[in-house]
Design a protein around this nucleic acid. Sequence first.
DNA 1: AAGTTACTTTATAATGATTCTAAACTATAA
DNA 2: TTATAGTTTAGAATCATTATAAAGTAACTT
Lengths: 142, 142
Amino acid sequence: MEHLKFNIEKLRASGLRPTRQRLAICKILFNRKETFHFTIDQLKKIAEKNIKKKISLATLYNTVHAFEKKGYLKEISLKGNKTFFDTNTKNHHHFYDEETSQLADIKNENISISNLPKIPNGKKIKEIEITIKVANNNQKQN
Amino acid sequence: MEHLKFNIEKLRASGLRPTRQRLAICKILFNRKETFHFTIDQLKKIAEKNIKKKISLATLYNTVHAFEKKGYLKEISLKGNKTFFDTNTKNHHHFYDEETSQLADIKNENISISNLPKIPNGKKIKEIEITIKVANNNQKQN
DNA sequence: AAGTTACTTTATAATGATTCTAAACTATAA
DNA sequence: TTATAGTTTAGAATCATTATAAAGTAACTT
């Protein structure tokens, strides 16, 4: 396993011991080229298939939240009951298909805002999040 | 009551009978100049104070969802467990202070996107939602 | 104005996501 | 090894939301 050391370091840097469960989670999240968008239950299914054992929901929540706090994951603002996370923690935006719950990244450079309105008094900008909702071209708009 | 007829019409147009509870909700939502951003429990508190009686949660959810379906209310995409609704159903965007959960509208005209990226194959744009997260100017960023 | 009907409200149960808990387990350092 | 502190886990608790079904009410009929 080429990435093992990398994942162990990632965990240690997050103040977490490298356990079997956490290493499985890290492998899914961080050993890939593309951005990964996921919900907890999607991550659970993949991780359990990989290690061929059940992983407790609590473990998944704990680990994901620890990574989020460390800045290795970002929560995405979307409607709906389930929380989506993103392994891309850079400033960026999303295409979102509500019908399929599919997300796709838009690089920060690939979109720009002009004519920004004035910020409310005493406030400063922390982050700008753009979501472009898309639907299949052949379907009627809802 | 000047707006009574207006609210009764709004309800009828939504296929809802004008009941005491629904009229109280309408008054809060639609008889105001400014956009109103709210969660169900905020609406519940205000409505119960107005009519000095309890209103069942189910009634609030039913009524709000009926208005949403009719296009009189919009759900806002945000992180977190609670669903926010908006009486402004025009295309527009938001300032959002996560610390206080305060929302403020940004008119569509007051912001513009340039350099839009290419839409994924077979998809078309349904809506663009921009959220500008703000924080108090004097506090450190998180 | 009373009766009938269909729609409403309501309290409460059910559901689903997330968080909490405390007991059994394990990585790690001594 | 052993001790310790951190982990995993199942299941309970919580919170928002939705479903249910019984009691209440608007509105139509007469």
